[in-house]
Design a protein around this nucleic acid. Structure first.
Lengths: 362, 362
DNA sequence: CTGTTAGCGCGTTCAA
DNA sequence: TTGAACGCGCTAACAG
């Protein structure tokens, strides 16, 4: 392949001037490549001040910047790690990302962010890509899928740390919310506030460990309180038709409760919805708002795990996840693995924080 | 360098099995590296079916995946492009990102997402990093800064495309919203709806071209309508103290208007706020909500450029940007540059869409 | 202190 | 149709 544009003598520098290489610098400084390499790697004490000055001058003159690819090829490590995000649309992911970035920064790592956009196929492709680019490790906020798709990762493959959710059959470090405690905390709050009917609303959870744990903890908390087992509504946000069926079911229940006595406009509602995460909470709020108007909160209380920016505006109670810490910790785990730690799979479960707002305050 | 861990016979496979190289595959298939390379690059017709079969078997057996780094080093192109995002917290950025990803996908590019998190220093470091990794081009949603920090980019440097904002002194392709039309559209809508007082609220815009254009278009539209020039409020979201001073100024103005006659609870407000983007709109909504309670919209109408997910919930009118298209187009521009297009700097201004909601409907 | 040499994993002439 | 040899930009032994 000849990149020299037509009409230009072969060998002449292409229009977008080819970047200088270490060889160029060596020639420019009148020395060998080794000395340049030494200079770049801080073995600066082993260079005569005079040579050093020449090297600095040459580098500046050529605006030289070492090629990390070549560097990585030689050293066998490129300081790259992959960060596979299931859904960047979810504020949770962006917040975790910020922790990841900060930690990478502190540890001299460079995160490659890959967005699967809720598509299994994307997840597979990105994982493949990360592997071929020989990243030193990956942080995976997996779609709910089974181990199969991320075979190249984990034991036997490149080091991996799971975020938020576990993947069946894949043993690896994992860091996320203490779902049991968080869902328990929320349920207990609703019970203390005297809500008579409590529904837990969650996306399909068969594949997603964190959702499972939240559902289970909710059920347990209801049982422990001696209450009839809580209702659980599954809302598949990816399937509009199914979603609307679910919401219709919810509507009927709410209508029934409201019809059995107390006036609907009572100061405080007796029905509470516990959303398993922010996307669910948003969907619920939009629906209730459309059905009952701006005053929907006088009929139904809403509590959600996650604390999106609109929660304060809508005045709903939330359980905020320590997202930044989750991301930061994940990178630390990964870094230890990369440095050769051989410990068995570790877990890091961080607590959520209850933020009470008007929706559930009485 | 010997990567074999101590206590292990040299040549034995290390614990985290070293990835197979092209040489390994060649040996396994009983042939030379060249044939493997040909196979990988689709020069498949030039291989005897028998050899091809052996190669396929060897690749499968070793789970071989070509090293993209080495590939890139050799070819001089690595199919990597950088995507520098100023603020992932802004839903706008995430939406643009989705367009970028789709386009990259279609064009065989791999986007490296870098998040400057509103820090100039970060922007500089990431740009530097992208350069040293020899990405083939960058898409830059720059902080408001001057050309200085992104010197390695643009003319003379690696191909670049600007998103949303222009950078002073840097000539490069740019794609974004048609700010003039959008701000005009919004202003006209508010005028048609009969609002008497209209404030345009924007973050500091000296450094950010898109904000400048929005302010100017607002002023122009007000003048064209023969109205007293609109008020403009600058809200520096990064400076909490300054921000509160600005909001206090706004409060005084609203109080004055409300005190001069009509009852505050009038069905439709006479005051409208035009937020230059979603973060500003959110800050305004939070403030008004805190000050006037949940019914703040009966006092003040809110219209915003950008269409965050909570806009529907809050019922505010918005001008939605064609975010996906912006991202997609940016990659197409960049791709053309990478392939050698020498055209002068191009602009692509896409129209916004007005979405009228209760806030401004009368 | 400094330069020479030999690869890292791969693609690409050029012969065979 | 196949393979040997060279080099991409860089680091690391090994001399001088």
């Amino acid at each position: 392949m000849n990149t020299t544009p037509p009409g230009m003598p072969p060998g002449a520098s292409p229009p977008a001037t080819r970047r200088a290489t270490i060889t160029d610098v060596a020639r420019e400084a009148g020395t060998g490549k080794t000395s340049i390499s030494r200079y770049l790697n801080g073995e600066i004490s082993a260079l005569s001040p005079e040579l050093r000055a020449r090297i600095e001058a040459a580098i500046a003159r050529l605006d030289y910047q070492p090629n990390q690819m070549a560097r990585g090829l030689k050293r066998g490590r490129n300081r790259l790690i992959g960060m596979l995000v299931a859904d960047l649309t979810n504020p949770y992911s962006v917040e975790v990302l910020q922790g990841v970035e900060a930690a990478c920064h502190a540890l001299g790592l460079m995160p490659l962010i890959c967005h699967a956009a809720n598509e299994v196929e994307m997840e597979r492709r990105y994982l493949q890509l990360l592997t071929t680019y020989r990243v030193e490790g990956v942080i995976v906020n997996a779609l709910g899928v089974r181990e199969e798709t991320l075979r190249p990762v984990g034991e036997g493959g490149i080091p991996a740390v799971l975020v938020d959710r576990r993947v069946e059959g894949l043993v690896a470090d994992m860091v996320g919310l203490d779902n049991g405690a968080a869902a328990g905390l929320g349920t207990q709050h609703l019970l203390e506030q005297g809500f008579e009917h409590i529904w837990f609303v969650v996306q399909p959870f068969a594949q997603v460990s964190s959702r499972q744990q939240r559902v289970e903890a909710f059920d347990r908390a209801m049982r422990d309180a001696g209450r009839a087992r809580g209702h659980t509504l599954v809302l598949d946000l990816a399937d509009e038709a199914a979603c609307e069926r679910g919401l219709a079911e919810l509507d009927r229940a709410i209508d029934a409760w409201c019809a059995d006595g107390i006036e609907p406009a009572a100061a405080s509602p007796r029905v509470a919805l516990f959303a398993a995460n922010a996307p669910v909470a948003l969907r619920l709020a939009l629906h209730l708002n459309a059905r009952y108007g701006a005053h929907w909160q006088s009929r139904v209380a809403l509590l959600a795990i996650d604390d999106p920016d609109w929660a304060e505006l809508a005045g709903i109670t939330t359980i905020r996840q320590p997202t930044y810490d989750i991301g930061y910790r994940a990178v630390e785990f990964l870094h230890e693995r990369i440095e050769g730690a051989q410990t068995g799979a570790r877990d890091c479960l961080l607590p959520g924080e209850l933020i009470v707002r008007a929706s559930t305050a009485r």
